[in-house]
Design a protein around this nucleic acid. Structure first.
Lengths: 153, 153
DNA sequence: TAATAATTGTTATTATGATAACAGTTTTGA
DNA sequence: TCAAAACTGTTATCATAATAACAATTATTA
């Protein structure tokens, strides 16, 4: 039963399912380690800031692929929780730079090994070559979609 | 600059980005074709029903990988819009079977070519073999995550 | 220089995602 | 048989996703 053509697969659906499972695992492992006082998305911001502090909100939005209104709200929550702080830029008064507090930095450090374990588990029976191929193909389909539909990536 | 190990890539992130681009393209093409009076997720339900009518809500939830409360809410909206109807099962009074109305069926038919075009665009420079490999690897990482974190898939 | 456009962050609204708790119904098992 | 467990759908709550509109500020350019 040879495959006649590409239409036998819905690649978008395959990617969505893989993404969904990864997401569910992230939620579960955060909860399992008592780290669900903040959410997966909020951790994304903390981890990003732990790599490079002092970003402004639009930069965070672009890097994480989220809208500015959502970043505003999440930063609000994180600020309320004392994990980040905003600081006005002196040169450009439109800009608010975002920094981790010490509490926030510790929080980010806690979640990193959980994420590393997830990555390892996900690739456990894949060779380095498999991984190279998977990443290459994922980036290709992403580029194709982005070009065809003029999506910013 | 040879790669030392798997840790050079964040596969979860690669998948999430690909998924996000596909999602954004879906939203954009629905809007471009004047089909944004209902959402991408709501279309998912219509298309599923167009393949096999009379599913009950838990089945829809399982197939689409969504929670039952969300399905309840979306079915409410689709019912209000006259695109689906609920029907009580005579054998098991807990069950509500869901059917497309004629309007709903037409709506589902409209979106199908848009989705097919997206799939074609996404794979435009991939060989049939590439696609086979991509699907195989995606299913592997999904299975790995699901097993390690005991996620239902 | 002054009008115009673009940028940054905010507020508001609708829909979806995840979770907990619930009522009604059916199945299971002592 | 009958009490306990499981199933189906619902309601409620909080967080995120997507979009539109807005004020304040900065950059552009006529």
């Amino acid at each position: 039963m040879a495959k006649s053509n590409n239409n036998d697969y819905d690649i978008g659906l395959e990617i969505a399912f893989a993404s969904s499972a990864y997401r569910a695992a992230g939620l579960k492992t955060l909860k399992a380690h008592g780290q669900d006082d903040i959410t997966r998305e909020q951790y994304g911001i903390l981890v990003l800031l732990s790599l490079g502090d002092g970003l402004y909100q639009t930069q965070i939005a672009n890097i994480l692929g989220k809208d500015r209104p959502n970043i505003t709200r999440m930063i609000d929550i994180l600020e309320t929780k004392g994990l980040i702080r905003r600081e006005k830029d002196t040169d450009n008064r439109r800009i608010l730079k975002v920094f981790l507090t010490e509490t926030g930095r510790k929080k980010a450090e806690k979640v990193k090994p959980l994420k590393e374990r997830m990555n390892k588990a996900q690739c456990k029976d894949l060779s380095d070559e498999d991984i190279e191929i998977l990443v290459t193909l994922l980036r290709k389909v992403r580029k194709n979609i982005a070009e065809e539909y003029k999506i910013e990536i």
